[in-house]
Amino acid sequence: MASRRDERRPTVDAGRPRNRPPLRPWQIRDRCFNVRRHGLDPVEIRAFLHQVADELAVAQTALVAVQEENVRIKNALRAWQSAQSTNTRYR
């Protein structure tokens, strides 16, 4: 049985809480955690955060490239459609 809370619209959009900008690689690299006795190895945590930040930087760069390509293709399609509609009027 689903609760009322489950029926509400999710508060997360694309895996990220609303009204919060996306994480930047430098934010991941600079993140610090409190280390307690018998806790996690800080060097291992730092290495992992750097790896995640590097992968995020690559993904963000690829996203920008895809978005730019998308705009270029849409503009080319609009130009082609305009040319086609102009050509069919004068036949």
Rank of each mutant, 00 (worst) to 15 (best):
M1L: 15
M1C: 03
A2Y: 04
S3T: 15
D6V: 10
D6T: 12
R8D: 13
T11S: 14
T11P: 06
V12R: 14
V12M: 10
D13L: 10
D13C: 14
D13T: 08
A14C: 10
A14W: 02
G15F: 01
R16N: 13
P17Y: 02
P17G: 02
N19R: 15
R20E: 13
R20H: 07
P21T: 12
P21F: 03
P21I: 09
L23Q: 11
L23F: 04
L23S: 11
R24T: 08
P25G: 07
W26P: 02
Q27F: 00
I28Y: 00
I28D: 02
R29W: 00
R31K: 14
F33V: 15
R36M: 10
R36F: 05
H38D: 15
H38E: 06
P42S: 01
P42F: 00
P42K: 04
E44Y: 15
I45S: 07
A47P: 01
L49Y: 03
H50S: 14
Q51M: 14
A53M: 02
D54A: 15
D54E: 10
E55Y: 01
L56M: 04
A57T: 00
V58E: 13
A59P: 01
T61K: 06
L63Y: 09
L63Q: 15
A65F: 08
V66K: 09
E68I: 03
E69L: 13
N70C: 14
R72G: 04
R72A: 11
K74R: 09
K74W: 03
N75H: 08
N75L: 12
A76W: 02
R78K: 13
W80M: 13
Q81P: 03
S82Y: 08
S85P: 00
S85L: 09
N87Y: 04
Y90I: 04
Y90V: 05
R91V: 04
